[in-house]
């Protein structure tokens, strides 16, 4: 009870801070939206070769995951600002649960991503996305949960490096190979074998593949199973690392 109340206080505070600067929500959405509008049409004539009836069931899941990964890896910037303002320390001298301090923030990031993701899927429909309604909803939920995992890890990273410069370097360094190897723009199935094997090591790739299956209505198959499996693993790992960092003393 106490834990949920504390999580709620942090969540509402973060939401209020975000709503004071709504431009960032729009800027965060801008990149995937541009991909959809400017890159999506290029995929349309290629979709048959890529093994998809509808180019957008291929592309929108990728962008959804990109939104989750990119958005959440950079949540740490806000946290570093708060850290510098002394907010984190002030929160840590209250009796509130350290997990609540993290989770309230993560839930806000998930809500923000859910809104951006819904807009993205809506745009996808406008461009010609057609697929299984249930699959799209489940895939969307998976992407939102994935955001939670990456955001928790992003906060842990921010509290560890403590400066924007270092965070930008690490987040960029991680996100670029992650985006390339998880087959967000083009499916890894068209890659040469060695590249496929490398990408198999990236959990996010399995999540992207699974969400693609879900979008086309291939719900009860291995793709979605592995996507759910890896999402759960990443969430547990992310929240664990994040809580540990919030608990740690010099953070």
């Amino acid at each position: 009870m106490k834990f949920f109340r504390e999580t709620g206080i942090i969540f509402r505070r973060q939401l209020r801070l975000t709503l004071r600067e709504p431009q960032w929500i729009v800027i965060g959405l801008l990149q995937p939206a541009l991909y959809l509008v400017l890159f999506g049409p290029l995929l349309e004539p290629l979709s048959r070769q890529l093994g998809a009836a509808n180019a957008y069931t291929l592309f929108v899941p990728g962008l959804l995951v990109q939104l989750a990964v990119f958005g959440a890896l950079f949540v740490g910037f806000g946290l570093i600002g708060e850290y510098r303002d002394g907010v984190i320390e002030a929160e840590r001298v209250t009796p509130a649960s350290r997990t609540a301090l993290l989770l309230g923030r993560v839930l806000k990031d998930m809500l923000q991503m859910a809104i951006q993701g819904a807009i993205l899927i809506g745009l996808g429909f406008a461009f010609g996305l057609r697929g299984s309604a249930v699959g799209i909803i489940v895939g969307f939920i998976l992407a939102v949960v994935l955001t939670g995992s990456i955001a928790a890890a992003g906060y842990a990273l921010a509290l560890t490096v403590k400066t924007e410069d270092a965070l930008a370097a690490v987040a960029n360094g991680v996100s670029l190979p992650l985006i390339l190897l998880s087959g967000i723009l083009l499916p890894m199935s068209i890659a040469p074998l060695w590249l496929q094997r490398v990408s198999d090591l990236v959990p996010v790739k399995h999540i992207v593949t699974g969400i693609r299956d879900l979008f086309t209505g291939d719900i009860f198959s291995w793709g979605p199973f592995w996507a759910i499996f890896w999402t759960i693993i990443l969430v547990v790992a992310g929240v664990w690392i994040g809580t540990r960092t919030f608990r740690r003393q010099n953070a």
Binding site: R13, R16, L17, R20, E21, G81, E82, R84, D85, G86, V87, E89, A90, V93
Partner: peptide, 16 residues
């Protein structure tokens, strides 16, 4: 505890 580094976010409203 009133720390040296402050306790409020620069973006936030004092009362809230």
């Amino acid at each position: 505890y009133v720390s040296q580094s402050g306790s409020t976010s620069s973006q936030a409203i004092a009362g809230s």
